[in-house]
Every structure is written in structure tokens, then in C-alpha cells.
Design a protein around this nucleic acid. Structure first.
Lengths: 220, 220
DNA sequence: GTCTATAGTCTGATAGAC
DNA sequence: GTCTATCAGACTATAGAC
């Protein structure tokens, strides 16, 4: 597939249409339908651009039903952000448990898990990244803590690689920001029609991360 | 400066407070004050989270005055998006004109210009990247065309580097997405207190881009 | 160009029946 | 848990004076 054919020429900020939620959410029940509807609309239109009636209309319930499950519209967002951040952290940590303690292998595992998570749950990732600001400071505290934990996983791997003399990292913060950015943006442009499988993207971006920390390309 | 000390632990989606606009905007006139006020608020709260009263209150004018200068709130956003996208394109193209036609030099020049533009006008970049979806499809057409032009500058440099045998690019789209992502995200985390100058960030990220396309580190 | 005042609609959230 | 009906306030945008 050519480059231009798969470039996003719409003004939508997310390409994918996948609305699935990672946790066991019963779509036959009102709570689950509300969460999925809100996820879709927040990803598409933003929190401020989505009304309670929009959410309830899409979920097929009345506003009263939403308020029976969530104290406010803001709490619906908070729940989505919690699910999104915790799912990513769970996957990143799990990826590290699955592999040997070699820094290169661990770096690649983190990047691959990041990519796979964002390809599988793009809307959740977009909302997590683009709508956190809509939450009050108090309600965002616990979510920010999870984000910090996820970031620390990458920092730890980078620092270990430097200690071993395996990585060349001149600036830890900038290296962290660059590698995170590559993975984060996947959620915004990935779609089933982009011509690449999540596996291919994960492979490629893991190699990019390795090259950023000064590793030579893998043979083969 | 340590990594943790400069990591953003607030839920704000932009760290910087710089609201300057690149074009000659007269802040003594209502139109300019409205644009700057809207830029600040859209960056902070999003388009949907900002009311006309918010904008006018911050600009020190009445809503009627805003409607004398712009047909609607949406047109204020459209003007900011136009300014932001055109300024970035202007800088990217200008960066290419300033350097010799060597692919490595041109790739580094593009990344450096991207970084500098986002450090200088972070709010404009955040709004351009995060609020385009709030625009109607019709009004976003011309803006998307400018974005496509900017992207094409990078694609052309990458393709030239591959033709010369200087770059190793296995997947053009993924390389484009990765290098763009690194620069784009700068607008969200850069602040004067991050402990790095725009020059340092530009140097580092230009080197990352070079390593992504398979170039060896510059000597020295 | 800027103001006061307001139209008409939509907003988040709630009362109370079942 | 879900409904109908509705509150009080905020919303975008406009009318008309100066």
C-alpha cells in the first residue's frame, strides 16, 4: 500500500471504529452500554462536545438511567480513563514478566505492548490521552499515578540498559518522550485499513526504539 | 535536571503558557485579543469546553464584538487552525531552502524546524493537533490540504534518501508516522521549566530521526 | 466597533411514579 | 432500574441603540 493511500485526509482525530472495552463489560446491561457509547462519542467529539443526551441516546437509555449508574457525566469519563490507564499498565507490566531480563529485549517488549494495546483499544487510548484535561484535578490524581507507573517501567528499562553499557542515552527525558510519542500516536492513526497489521507496526516501532538508544539493527 | 522532576504530573494537556501568535496580530485591537484568548482557552479546555463568554471575558470584549469579527465560534477556531498549520508549513519549507540538498541534512532540518515551531507556539500546535475534529468537514478542507503539504515535505526527503541509498526505510508510512509523532508531541510536554532548550531538543530529536532511517551517529 | 438586552435552544442534573 | 416530565442555568447567536 502506498503512503498517500493510507494517510488520513479527514478531520477526524481517530481513524479506528473499534469501541471494545478491555474489561468484562456486559453490553446487555445499561452500565456497559453507557460506557461504550460514551467512549465512542468522547473519542469522536471530545468530552466537552458530547452531551448527556448524546450518550444516553446512543446507549438506548434515558438520562435518569445514566445518573443511576454514575454520579455525573464527569464520572463516566473518569471510569473510562481509569480502565484505559490500568489496562495499558497491566499489559506493559505483563510484557516485562514474559521476557528475559536483557535490556534490549525488555525495551522492545514494552514498545510492542504499547503498540498492541493502542491498536486493540484505539478509542480508549485516544480518550485517555486527549481528554484527561477535562477531569477535575481531584478525580485525575489516581489516574495520573497509574500513568506515572507506566512511564516508570520504560524509565527503569532505559536506565538499566545504560548501566549495562548496552544503551547510549544522552538525555533520559528526551529519550522517554520520543519513544512514548511514537507509541502514543498509534491510537490516532491506526485503522484496519492502514495496510499494516499491529504485529508489523509493533515490530517496526520496536526497532525504531532500539535504534534511538543506539543499538544496531538486529541481524535478519 | 532529573527525569522525574520534569515529568508532567498535572492533568493539564499542555505545560507551556506561551500564547503568542506567529502572525502580526495587534493585541490592542479586539480581533487580536479574541484570537489570543480563544487560543489559550481552546488549548486548555478544548473547543467544546470553552464558551463564547469565556473567550470574550478573557479578551475583555462583549460577545457582540466577537460576532462583529467572526461569523461564529467555529470560525474563530478555523482561523487559529489556519494560522497554526500555515505557520508550520512555512517554517518547514523555509528550513529546506536554507540547507544543502543532502538527505540527512534535510531530514535533520525538517525535524529541527518542527521542534522549534512547537516550542515557540505550543498552544497553537496543541490546538492544531487536538481540536481539528471540532471543525465541520467543509471548513477543515483547506486546513487539511496544508497539513498534507507539510507531510509531503518529509515524505519527499525520506524518498530521496532511500533513492540515494543513504536511508534504510523498510516502511515509508511507519517511518513518517514515527518521526512526525516525536515532533508533534513536543507541543504537549515542552515548557520553559523542562530543563532543555528548544535547541537541545531539536538536536536530540534530529539525531533520533537520523537513527530511525538507519544513519550512524554523527561524529562528535 | 462596541455596547445592553434578550431570543430561543440546549445543558447537566433531579423529582417522583412504577 | 427505568421511565416521563421538568428545573434552573448556560449556551450560541442576534436585535437595535450609539
Amino acid at each position: 500500500m502506498s503512503v498517500s493511500a493510507s494517510r488520513n485526509v479527514s478531520n477526524r482525530r481517530i481513524v479506528a471504529r473499534t469501541t471494545e472495552l478491555p474489561e468484562q463489560v456486559d453490553l446487555r446491561r445499561a452500565r456497559g452500554r453507557i460506557l461504550v457509547a460514551a467512549l465512542h462519542l468522547f473519542a469522536d467529539q471530545g468530552y466537552g462536545g458530547t452531551s448527556v443526551r448524546d450518550i444516553c441516546g446512543r446507549a438506548g437509555v434515558q438520562p435518569t438511567t445514566m445518573y443511576a449508574h454514575f454520579p455525573s457525566k464527569e464520572d463516566v469519563l473518569a471510569e473510562l480513563l481509569r480502565i484505559g490507564h490500568e489496562e495499558l499498565y497491566r499489559r506493559l507490566r505483563s510484557a516485562l514478566l514474559d521476557v528475559e531480563p536483557d535490556p534490549r529485549v525488555r525495551l522492545e517488549a514494552l514498545v510492542r505492548a504499547h503498540v498492541h494495546s493502542h491498536c486493540e483499544f484505539p478509542m480508549l487510548a485516544v480518550v485517555a490521552n486527549a481528554e484527561l484535561h477535562a477531569l477535575s484535578e481531584h478525580k485525575s490524581e489516581s489516574i495520573l499515578a497509574v500513568r506515572q507507573q507506566s512511564e516508570s517501567l520504560l524509565v527503569d528499562v532505559l536506565e538499566r540498559g545504560v548501566q549495562c553499557g548496552q544503551f547510549k542515552v544522552a538525555d533520559m527525558l528526551l529519550t522517554l518522550r520520543a519513544i512514548s510519542a511514537i507509541g502514543t500516536r498509534v491510537a490516532f492513526w491506526y485503522g484496519p485499513d492502514c495496510g499494516r497489521t499491529p504485529e508489523q507496526i509493533a515490530d517496526t516501532f520496536a526497532a525504531f526504539a532500539a535504534s534511538i538508544v543506539g543499538l544496531p539493527p538486529r541481524s535478519g
